[in-house]
Amino acid sequence: MNLERILAIQPDLIIISDQDEALYDQLSKIAKTIIVPMSENWQDTIMLARIIQNNRMDGSFCKQNH
């Protein structure tokens, strides 16, 4: 994962899988970072990320998953 590239795009939210949990501290210095559990089914993982993003946009998501 290229942290300089992530920093350059100035995200306001970073969603990572639990496989990248070791990068959480570094990423959370760039933007709010949420860890989602990796599923065997990649569609489930994408759906969970979309739910988090949609809830965050309407203000109903207020807690990090960590």
Rank of each mutant, 00 (worst) to 15 (best):
L27K: 01
N2D: 11
R50Y: 00
W42A: 03
I52D: 01
M47I: 02
I30S: 07
M57E: 11
L3W: 02
F61R: 04
H66Q: 10
P11D: 07
S28F: 05
C62S: 13
I15C: 00
K63V: 12
Q10D: 10
V36F: 01
N54L: 07
I9Y: 07
S17R: 01
E40C: 00
L48E: 02
W42N: 04
H66T: 08
D18P: 03
M1R: 10
A31L: 06
A8G: 13
I51P: 02
S39I: 02
S60W: 10
Q10W: 02
I35E: 01
M47V: 03
P11Y: 09
M57V: 11
I16Y: 07
K29V: 11
D25F: 08
Q10V: 14
F61D: 07
Q43T: 10
N41L: 08
D44T: 03
Q10L: 14
D18L: 02
I51Q: 08
M57L: 14
Q53E: 09
E40S: 06
N55W: 02
F61E: 10
Q53C: 10
K29G: 14
A22N: 07
M1E: 05
D20V: 03
I16C: 09
P37M: 06
I6M: 09
I14W: 06
Q43C: 02
D12G: 13
D44F: 00
Q53N: 12
A49F: 00
I16S: 05
L23N: 08
D20E: 12
Y24P: 00
Y24A: 09
A49E: 04
I30F: 05
R56H: 13
I34R: 00
Q19K: 14
